[in-house]
Each structure stands twice: as structure tokens, then as C-alpha cells.
Design a protein around this nucleic acid. Structure first.
Lengths: 253, 253
DNA sequence: CGTAAACTTGACGGCTCTCAAATATGGTGG
DNA sequence: CCACCATATTTGAGAGCCGTCAAGTTTACG
């Protein structure tokens, strides 16, 4: 029988190499080296609290799994991935956050996953005790948490029940607002139904998010290209000439 | 090639049959038929709000995906599963809740998944507007939501990166408190390290939770039995003669 | 222009799914 | 209490999707 399956690295080496993150060694440009930016431009809900904004480069780690959780974060711009690692190096990206999303909440006092920027990002940082002071802020946090839960439910369906092709199609649809979900506007009556999506993620990150390997992600994309469903303008710029067609491949309908 | 993969039902029939829930037809003893029980015995946090407790039988549906979300629920006793369905009948159980857990929160105003009892359960029901009234209650809701998010993160790792054997082992460890997670007490010094777990779920429900098929779940359990790692006393009563041994199969260590 | 990293492609194997049948379990009525 | 039936579970055989390993090829960047 085979002992530990899926997406593991050539264990001992890579682990001792960087301490984590299989096959991604070298993309970690040092951790926690933000430049202080400013204290203005607060959002509505966070206006009452004392906050600061920190700017991070691409692929910087904000915190690691098991670090003590003393801060709460809000994505001001850019995008952040949350991931967990198994002891043998398998990685699962559990969530991808964009502007307005909160993260860093913890019941245990310790972060349950690591947070890393996918692109240069501005992140608002506040002390976690701040939220207890304002009812409005608590309410806002609440709504954000519910939103994350719904996203995680969708992701569980994707990981548990969708084929590789369906996962990739669902992933592409993430970048098309108001399509493929409730309240889908459908293809615009006049004109075509095409859309260019910019992934801003490596194949490894996509694979780790979708519970696949980079080879499978690559093969599915090549297949979609061959069938004329997408065209790859740049590695992370993908044109969907017919959004509806992609949507029908997600497994949702 | 096979068209739509994984865990689908013999489509047209079963769908038109009950409207949902593949292979589970007949376990739905009618929906929304709770008996009113009492209004006392409130928990600390919900004491301030006007609530009622409803009692449900095993496998009753509390609400369906897409129902308008006007209530908030708390499990008082028993256990509830939340699941989503794909159009072709594939089901994914996204969460399993027990006493103290909240559910039914929604940002969209519509439930994002269905809720069904696994065993006879008491459920506290409150109007969702109630939570906005009390800061303490909001804080409590917050903590519950964070707990769900951490559980969903774990589940994403399981669904995305674990083998069938690891999933089943992880599932069994759910029923052993304070083991296999942070703060694991380890095997008690004196005496053995055995434990009897009562699943109170069908193989289909376990499979739909773990992102597997019923047959795979069964095969893994048979294999664990053959290797002496578990013994099956009844279909849903499983003895773990060596908890640590099961824990080492979860893929976490 | 040269090197390293990222990505693609191919060959192959295996874990898990599908389909099918046998066995066990649980509830019901005689 | 026991035969009988429907349902749940187990087991078997075979297939296929996707992972692994190992090249190529392209891209990125100094």
C-alpha cells in the first residue's frame, strides 16, 4: 500500500530546507518585513478603532500557523492566501482573501493557519481587543465571518465532490463577478460574453488551493485551451471567450 | 471518459423522487415537524434573548439551501449536519455540529446549505434580529463563528490533501476528546489507551462528509479491522484499542 | 544572452470510483 | 420468537482519473 498520498515533497530535504511550503522554496522573500505606510484612510467600520496599515510585497508571510494570535487583519488592497501544512509538507490553501475581508481571528489564541500575500498588498492591522469596544465593529466582524463560512462551504463542495476540470472551471469563475452564482446576470444580450481574468497566482498556488497537483492544473488548462474554451494570453492572464461555457463546466448546473 | 465524476446517483429517478438528497430517500421523515418543548433552561449567552427550543427526530430537515434565512439556531443537544448538493445529486456534508454550536447565519438572507439532524436533537431557535440587541450575545456569536471557521479549515485540508485512510482515521479521532490536536494529552500513563466511539451516522453520511463513496469508507474500515486497529462492535460502535495508533494514521503527524 | 524558475507534456501506476452481487441488520407481522 | 422484507453494509472485479516521475519548453530577469 502507499503510505502517505498526494502532493508530498521529497521529504527530508525540502522540509529542512525552508521549514515548510513544499516545492515553493525561494518564493518566500523573508517574513514579516512590512513598511509602515500611514494611519489615515480608514474604512467606515474600522474608523473608530486605532489601526495602522502595513504594506507587504508579493509572497510575504504575515504570520505562521501556531503563532500567537494577537492581531486582527483586514485586507485593504491586494490578496492574501491562508494555508495549512501537514507534517510531510502537503499544503492546502484553505482560503483566498481580497479587499474588505478580515482574517487572523482565533478562538484558541493561536493562528490556525499561515497567511501569505499573493500580490503586493496593503493590510490594516488592529489589536484584537479593539473589536470588543465597538458594537458596530463587532457587527461588521460578524458579517465578514459569515461570508468566510459560506465561501468555505463552497470550497468544501469543490474539494470533496468536484472533478479536476470542474475545480479549475470553478476557479476561473471566481474572477468573473456576478456570474455563476445566485443572481447571475447571464450573458449580456448585446455583444459577446468574453472576459479576461488575471489570476496573479502560480500554478502551485492554484493547485494547492484546488487540492490538485500543478501537473493536473496545467493539463486541464491545456485541454480547455485545445477545446477553444479559454486562451492563455500570459501564464496568469486567461481569456474566456464564452463565460457561460466555462460556467457550465463548474458542476454547479 | 466518464462524464460527471464521483458519488452521483442514478440521476433522474432519485432526484424527482424526493427533490434532493441522493441515496437517502426514505430517511427524511417529513420536514419541519418539530414539537414545541419549553422556553426555560436558557444558556448563559442566550438568556437575554427570547428563544424557544424545538425538538427534532433523527434525520429531520430544519431548513433547505435557498430557504430565506430568518432564524438563527443553536444546538442544545444532539447533532446536526450541514450539507450542499450539486445539480446532479452529488452531496457534500460541509459541517457537523454538536451542543453549543450555532448555525443558520447568513449574509445573503438565504441559507447557503441544508441542515438535517443526525440524531434526535434539541435546537434553540431565535430571531436573527435578536443578536443585534446584546453585545455579549454578539461576542458569543463571534466566537462560535471563529470556531466553525477553524473546523472548516481542518476539513478543507482533509478533503484536499488526505488519502481515504487518513480521512477515516481523522473522522474516528473526532470522537476522542482532547486527542490528536493541540494539547493532546497522550495515552494515559496507567491502563490502556482504548476508547469506544459511537458514530451515530450512516456510511452514506460519513462518505458524504469525507468526500468519499460509501464503498471506500467501508473498505477502509474493513482494512483497519483486519489489521486490528479497530473492532466493529456494531455498525456505528467502533472500538479503538490503541487511540495513538489511529491518531498516527490521520496524516497530521 | 544566459541562467533559474515556472510551466507543459508524456508515460505509467495506483487509489478510488463504478457497477454488481452477496451478506448483515433492523423492523414488522404472524 | 421467528420468518420475511427492505435497507444498510460489505465485498469483488474492473476501469479511469489523477498523482508520480521524468523529461522538455517557455518565461522571467539580470
Amino acid at each position: 500500500m502507499y503510505v502517505d498520498t498526494k502532493q508530498r515533497l521529497d521529504t527530508a530535504d525540502a522540509i529542512s530546507d525552508s521549514g515548510f511550503a513544499p516545492r515553493t522554496v525561494g518564493r518566500y522573500h523573508g517574513t514579516r518585513a512590512p513598511r509602515h505606510v500611514d494611519d489615515t484612510a480608514w474604512t467606515d467600520y474600522l474608523a473608530a478603532a486605532r489601526t495602522r496599515i502595513e504594506r507587504f510585497d508579493s509572497h510575504e508571510v504575515l504570520f505562521h500557523e501556531d503563532d500567537t494570535a494577537d492581531h486582527l487583519y483586514e485586507v485593504a488592497s491586494g490578496s492574501i492566501m491562508l494555508y495549512r501544512l501537514l507534517a510531510d509538507g502537503r499544503r492546502q490553501v484553505v482560503d483566498i482573501l481580497s479587499a474588505g475581508d478580515l482574517f487572523g481571528m482565533s478562538v484558541t489564541g493561536v493562528y490556525d493557519c499561515s497567511a501569505e500575500t499573493l500580490v503586493p498588498s496593503d493590510v490594516r492591522v488592529l489589536d484584537k481587543r479593539e473589536i470588543e469596544r465597538s458594537a458596530d465593529l463587532q457587527n461588521h466582524v460578524n458579517r465578514c465571518l459569515m461570508g468566510r463560512i459560506e465561501a468555505l462551504h463552497s470550497h468544501a463542495v469543490l474539494l470533496g465532490r468536484k472533478s479536476a476540470a470542474e475545480r479549475v472551471a470553478s476557479f476561473l469563475m471566481r474572477f468573473v463577478p456576478n456570474r455563476g452564482m445566485i443572481g447571475c446576470t447571464g450573458p449580456k444580450a448585446a455583444g459577446g460574453d468574453d472576459k479576461v481574468v488575471v489570476l496573479r497566482m502560480t500554478r502551485q498556488e492554484i493547485a494547492d488551493y484546488l487540492g490538485l497537483t500543478i501537473e493536473t492544473v496545467s493539463r486541464v488548462l491545456s485541454d480547455l485551451k485545445r477545446r477553444g474554451i479559454i486562451s492563455i494570453e500570459k501564464n496568469d492572464r486567461i481569456r474566456l471567450p464564452d463565460v457561460c461555457r466555462v460556467c457550465r463546466l463548474t458542476g454547479i448546473h
